[in-house]
Amino acid sequence: MEKSDILNHLAQAVIDMDVTRARQAAAEAMSCNMDPYEAITGGLAKGMDTVNELFENEEYFVPEILLCADAMYAGIEVLKPHFPKEAAPNKKKVVIGVVKGDTHDIGKNLVKIMLDNAGFEMHDLGRNVPYAKFIDTAGELNADLVCLSTLMTTTMDGMHIVIEDMKKAGIPARVMIGGGPISPAFAKTIGADGYAKNAAEAVKVAKGMFQGIQIPLAMKIPELVSIRKNRGGVR
């Protein structure tokens, strides 16, 4: 099969919300020795770009976006073992989670996958995570970075508490925050070291913090986080 056909299949499977076809096309790409990054940028993520356009044009809504994202994840899972990984000793440790009071985690999951692929060692605490859990885990692991996410305005203050408590506990890890209602100004106010508006930017910001890690990853991932920004006030 032509390379362009495989890439089209990858993209179309995402647009059609078809997990099975996304897996098949990803396996096909690997059996043709395609660069896994290209399978993502030129295939799965490209499909997700179209999905975002459909969302902006109000042809697709959240249920469709979620099923398209599932197809994309399924494809990425097949490609994952083929990614070149950074040598283990250099890996920076990252603790990630959604702050207490919030159970929305699609944005956090994307950031986790992206950072994992970018060569970070990820420790996922899940969602609705109590403040102390971030501090305890970061301390135990001697983590380099703590990533905090929230989609709700009512839980934003929790990020501030985590940062304050980390300082009090003498945890040296840096903090990156993101999520629907978060702005760069808010990040600055509460003393976060970094802010990312979406998963792709999270990789850039995290890499910028630790120059040692360099993986050529120019992956364009859909801005699922920013898409949902208007839900900031939803309870």
Partner: peptide, 12 residues
């Protein structure tokens, strides 16, 4: 709050 047109679209 979850039954918004923004999340579901008109058909759903």
């Amino acid at each position: 709050p979850s039954a918004t047109g923004e999340i579901l679209g008109p058909d759903m």
